[in-house]
Design a protein around this nucleic acid. Structure first.
Lengths: 260, 260
DNA sequence: GGTCAATTTCCGCCATATGGAATTTTGATT
DNA sequence: AATCAAAATTCCATATGGCGGAAATTGACC
């Protein structure tokens, strides 16, 4: 699962350190030099040298003779950062409330601006037996569905452009890609209304999602509710929209205040 | 508060990046280039160049024209790390329970192996009006008190040695430093018993603390209960010791399992 | 004790980090 | 608008320190 190096490693000591640190943070809690070198696509001696630097600052520690682990300093910094504001923790009661009121799966997604990916950070499942298999860490396409578009619409124009040009964001469902102009119009509507809705009876999935903003207006992710489209029409659409939007605004508000 | 550069900045791009990243993580959520350069004790052009590397990987982002902020990638990694195991969060119910049962202030401390410092990560105050002013982030001396010694005793021998040699860990209270051999003996006893007790009637503070270990036996910090020594004798000592030790073992157990 | 795989050290080459100075951008003030 | 001071950014000559292949070492597993 954590084997191949997808991207070419950067050059320069500083860039490589940042690159390795992210690889380590996204990887398993313990790892061997060889594994990391393979994942990074770098020679072992290079990775070894950089690990020495990370160890010197406590960001990585040795764990036994042939493995490394995430260091206590990194844990400390992570803890400090999330003490200011932890989106996932803040969202949990809101997701629970959405499920409690509407009995449909509620999801929090976070956006990674570097990878330009949206992933599921937390979810609370509907009690209905018919539901989608949702798992934390699952990637959500930026151009399909309510969750992806709730994020995409509020990215800076340049970033939207890059996403649309990216050939890798293709039609996952085998469907032809929506014409570019139609999508741009759709995104305008989402910006205007402040939320995204995805409901086409012939598609099996429907949902409503609202963006979550950070203190400077940057998109942190989105909250939303998803369901099989067969159940969508059972709900009072306006009330559901209001509930989701309120959750999004609430989280944005918390994010704006917390970082002091 | 965040102004002076205490330590000399390291040389080499990799080391400097790690150094800066820690400075950023420990600093305010937004900062200016000049501030960071001053805190780092490095020329602005150097810091600027390194910030470019961090920005490229999303660990830092621009926030307006004259300030930077912590990046969403760093937040993401922090969130990922703490999702595996968040010591502070795991400790909260235990601290509450200790206070509920004993009505004395319960504290969680974390240990930073690089700075060789113990700081208060979380605390729940006693309902008694007579109590110590305790604040998150406060530093605890390693050689004085139950909390510091509960950590110190379980560090690797070499690390203990370094702490004892460190002239900066002096007698904070103005008291003469305990003779080295007496302290080593005390630490032996703490290791033997699995907890530390600090109660000398002539001192004003008393407490009991137990270490918290990570998955490989490294010391993460300690949990403890502190009180004015005047109240210490009101308690059933053995039961209090058992409660604190149970909390320490419980947290160590959680830490051992979670990181899979 | 032997074997193999993984880590760590070594070293000559040269890419790139370095920081002072120059230039540009910003935003405060009138 | 125009002006100015302060902050950020770019530039550049220098040489430090990063680079990775290969050799030496260590540790794991039989």
């Amino acid at each position: 699962m954590w084997e191949t190096a997808l991207t070419n490693p950067p050059n320069g000591a500083a860039r490589r350190l940042a690159f390795l640190l992210k690889l380590i943070g996204d990887g398993p809690p313990r790892f061997a030099l060889g594994d990391l070198a393979a994942r990074a696509g770098l020679p072992q001696s290079t990775v070894h040298r950089n690990l020495q630097a990370l160890i010197e600052f406590g960001l990585v520690e040795r764990s036994g003779s042939q493995s490394y682990r995430i260091g206590r300093e990194l844990q400390r910094i992570a803890s400090r950062l999330l003490q200011r504001f932890d989106l996932v923790r803040a969202a949990q009661p809101l997701l629970a409330e959405l499920v409690g009121n509407w009995h449909e799966t509620a999801v929090l997604c976070t956006y990674s601006p570097i990878e330009r990916r949206v992933v599921i950070a937390e979810s609370v499942c509907t009690p209905h037996p018919l539901r989608f298999a949702i798992e934390n860490g699952m990637e959500i396409g930026l151009v399909w569905g309510s969750l992806g578009r709730a994020v995409l619409a509020f990215l800076p124009p340049g970033e939207i452009e890059l996403v649309l040009r990216d050939p890798s964001v293709g039609p996952l469902t085998g469907r032809p890609r929506m014409p570019r102009d139609d999508l741009l119009e759709e995104l305008d509507a989402i910006r205007e209304q402040g939320f995204s809705r995805y409901y086409e009876p012939q598609m099996e999935i429907a949902g409503i999602a609202a963006p979550v903003f950070g203190p400077e207006g940057e998109v942190l992710g989105c909250v939303g509710v998803t369901m099989p489209s067969s159940r969508y029409r059972n709900h009072l659409e306006d009330d559901l929209v209001d509930a989701v939007c309120a959750a999004g605004r609430h989280l944005s508000g918390l994010a704006a205040v917390s970082p002091a």
